[in-house]
Structure formats: C-alpha cells, structure tokens
Nucleic acid binder design. Sequence first.
DNA 1: CGGGGCTCCTGTGCGC
DNA 2: TGCGCACAGGAGCCCC
Length: 282
Amino acid sequence: MPELPEVETIKRELNVIIGKKITDVIVNNAKVIKEPKKEKFIKELKNVAIKNIIRKGKLLIFELSSGKSLTIHLKMTGQLIYPSTTLGTSPQKSTRVRFKLSDGKFLDFNDRRLFGELRIIDDWRKLKFIKELGPEPFDIDVKKFAAMLKGTSRPESGSRPRSGKIKVLLMDQKFISGIGNLYANEALFRAKIHPQRPANSLSKKEQELLFKEIKDTLSEAIKYKGSSVDQYVQLSGKPGEYSRYHQVYDREGEKCFKCKSEIKRISLGGRGTYFCPICQKL
DNA sequence: CGGGGCTCCTGTGCGC
DNA sequence: TGCGCACAGGAGCCCC
C-alpha cells in the first residue's frame, strides 16, 4: 500500500542513482511491463542514463537521457531496492525486474502480486493517468480544498457536486492525489470525521481541520519514512517507522487511544475502513 | 451521477 | 500439525 509518503521516501532515496547509467535489464516476469513489449523495453533502457526522478501522486517517473521516461507504479506490493545484495532483502522470488547500473549494483523491482506497472513513454505528461490526476494536498490551499469538496471548483478541473462518501473521495486519485486507504483512515480519525459522511456535508471548520490533518498526517509519515504494514520497505530494504503511530488502521476491536471505545471496521469502496464510532461523528 | 462489485495476482495467516 | 481459503487494497472497469 505505498501511498504518497512511501513513494516520496523512495523518491528521495533514489537521488543516489541520478546520473548513473543503466547497463543491463533482467526481466524475470514480463507481466509488470505494460509498454512497450519486453524486448523493446530492455532495448530502450540499455546504455541510457537516469537524468532525473520525480513523483506525481503515487507514480514514480525516471526521466532518461534518451528523452523518454520510465514510469513505475508500485500499486500494492511493489518494492524498489538499491543497492540489491545477495544476502539481504533482494533479489528474491518476487524480484520481477533488475536494473544493472553503471556502478555495478542492481536496482531491483520486487512485486509479490504483480499489480505493479512499468512503462517507457515518450512524454509522461501525456499519460492518461497523469492528465486525470487531481492536485496533491501540498499544492493547494484550504480554499481550493473546500471548493473541491463542495463541488464548486472550476468544471475543467473535474469538480462536480460531491455527495459521495468522504473517505471514498479522498482515495480517488482524480480528486486529490497521493492518499490511499491507510492515510484516508488516519486523517479522518484525526479530523474526527466519520468515513461515511457525504463529502459536501462538511462544515467549514471540518473542511479546515481535515485539510490540516491530511497534510500533517502525510508530513509525519514522510518524516518517519512511511508505514511498513505489508510489503512496503525503504530503498535500503528497511521498514518505515510510521506504523507505530497509526491510530485506527488495522486496529479493529482494539481500544481507541483517545476515548478507549472499540475501533470498528466496515467496508467502503471495497476497502477495509477503520474508525472510532465515538470520536468520529456521522 | 453514486455505489457496489469484480478484476488483475500471490503470499500470508487464520480457522478448523 | 496440516490444509484450504479468505484476505490484503491501487486503480480501472462494468453495470445498475
């Protein structure tokens, strides 16, 4: 479940490979390569340098010296490991693609469930996923956020009246980018808002608090290098430390840290949704 | 439009 | 102790 903080952590750590050249590509499972086909994918990367690495929402983009870009989406169980060691966390059974760099070390893409997506494209800005991506929480102000929730934001930015559930909306990458199931749960708890609240029903105070808590939760998670709940690890293979600060996620039946009542779990948008029925008002 | 459910997959961890 | 299966949830898609 890498979300914005996890992908941002990896992106920052990947700084060390900027300027290095890819000397070889080993594909153990071509399913994660979405375009172009395996042979062309390998050819496009060989002897090409990594010029820059950026992140858009949960998507990593490697800008290459060829002018093209390699995009990597970790989806749920994707990992990037560098430098890979034979004794450490990589390579392993789930190592799907290995990039050999000009320093002789490997950057490994591991992905247990094969949901991850690698592609090479001429212009990442033209990707449908990118064009439809909503703004990041850090790129907007509270006024804009409030307008988006109310659905009164400019039509060309894709805003409509938002009567859907707030938690489902927060996870919608076309609405706002970077938030997944874990941080949607955490931010809503901190803002004392029930996940089933209609998005356009929030009071001005609630909008402000939610916006603040989204940013604070994400910032804190970045500070602690992400949450290792399932598969996520840092580039070095070390787990992220933020999991120990989770208030509700994966805590069904345990006591709320604030009011001691029982954390509940429901399903929203097909996702496990955790909340405190006392602290979070419907 | 919202919402629910299914799909892509596989390793883990639970219940029996 | 072993076996089988529900579950994890990012994002796209389909249908009502």
